[in-house]
C-alpha cells in the first residue's frame, strides 16, 4: 500500500526539520506511542499500541533514518511486529518553503503488512492509515504553531 500527501505547516523549514528528526519530539505526535528508546542518532525503538478492527496488539517498531539531507529530504524505514502480524514502512519526506513562515511537507509511505493485520484487518487499513496520518500531521501543526 502506498500513502502520500502534502501538508502546509505554519513554521519554517528549519523548525519543521528539527521537530520531525527529533525522535522525542515527533513521538509526541505518533498516536498511541507507549514508550520510546533512542538507540543512536539515526535509530530508535518505539512501542505502539494499535488496534485495527479485531486485530489488537502492542507493536514493537525498529525505526531507522536512511537518508537525512538537511533541511529538505529525509527517508525513514520502520519494521514493526506483534504476535501474528508484522508491518514494514518505507517513508520519505520532502520539505520546501511555501512562504517565509510556511513549509510544504510532501510525504509518502510504502506500507507492507503481513499476517493477521493483513488477512483480517485489510478492509480497515486504508481508513485506519488515513485517520492516523491526519492525527499525526494535525499534531505537528499544533505543536509547531503553538
Amino acid at each position: 500500500m502506498r500513502f502520500s500527501g502534502t501538508e502546509r505547516i505554519p513554521a519554517t523549514r528549519e523548525q519543521v526539520w528539527a521537530f520531525l528528526t527529533d525522535p522525542n519530539a515527533v513521538a509526541q505526535c505518533v498516536p498511541d506511542v507507549e514508550s520510546l528508546e533512542v538507540v543512536d542518532p539515526t535509530r530508535f525503538k518505539a512501542q505502539v499500541r494499535a488496534g485495527i478492527g479485531p486485530v489488537r496488539g502492542k507493536f514493537g517498531f525498529d525505526v531507522a533514518w536512511q537518508e537525512l539531507t538537511q533541511p529538505s529530504r529525509a527517508r525513514m524505514t520502520a519494521q514493526g511486529k506483534t504476535g501474528g502480524s508484522a508491518v514494514t514502512v518505507d517513508s520519505a519526506m520532502d520539505l520546501s518553503a511555501a512562504s517565509p513562515g510556511e513549509t510544504d511537507l510532501a510525504w509518502s509511505a510504502d506500507v507492507v503488512v503481513h499476517g493477521m493485520i493483513a488477512s483480517v484487518g485489510a478492509r480497515l487499513l486504508d481508513g485506519f492509515a488515513k485517520k492516523q496520518t491526519e492525527q499525526f500531521f494535525g499534531c505537528i501543526r499544533q505543536k509547531l504553531t503553538g
Binding site: 507492507v112 503481513h114 493477521m116 493483513a118 488477512s119 483480517v120 485489510a122
Partner: peptide, 14 residues
C-alpha cells in the same frame, strides 16, 4: 492471496 502471500478471506467476514 495478495502479492505478499497474505490470505484474503481468512475469516467468515470475507
Amino acid at each position: 492471496y495478495d502479492e505478499h502471500g497474505n490470505i484474503r478471506g481468512g475469516t467468515f467476514m470475507d
